[in-house]
């Protein structure tokens, strides 16, 4: 299934703003740089789809107040 265009652009904008000097390690074994992540999202790989979902869920939970009230 293709990624929703709006969600994809939001996630890409957030990732493009991230530092170039970090790495993201997944416990499935992948280690991705910022460029790798952007490529995965642009190519809509499985890991790219997961990352879009991760960023959108975070923004939804931040907007709903869940993150700051979840004690």
């Amino acid at each position: 299934m293709k990624i929703n265009k709006i969600k994809k652009s939001i996630a890409l904008a957030r990732i493009q703003a991230q530092s170039d000097k970090i790495k993201i390690h997944f416990s499935s074994g992948e280690t991705l740089t910022k460029d790798d992540i952007i490529s995965n999202i642009e190519n809509e790989t499985e890991i790219g789809k997961k990352l879009v979902d991760l960023h959108i869920e975070f923004l939804q939970d931040l907007a709903s107040g869940k993150i700051n009230s979840d004690d």
């Binding site: 991230q18 530092s19 970090i22 993201i24 869920e57 975070f58 939970d61 931040l62 993150i67 004690d71």
Partner: peptide, 24 residues
């Protein structure tokens, strides 16, 4: 959660955005 809030309070956007992974 404490570390997520710490990241979110950062003046640096690059740091704030990493909170998404910690929340996950």
């Amino acid at each position: 959660r404490k570390n997520i809030r710490f990241l979110l309070k950062s003046q640096i956007r690059q740091t704030r955005d990493i909170a998404a992974y910690l929340w996950h």
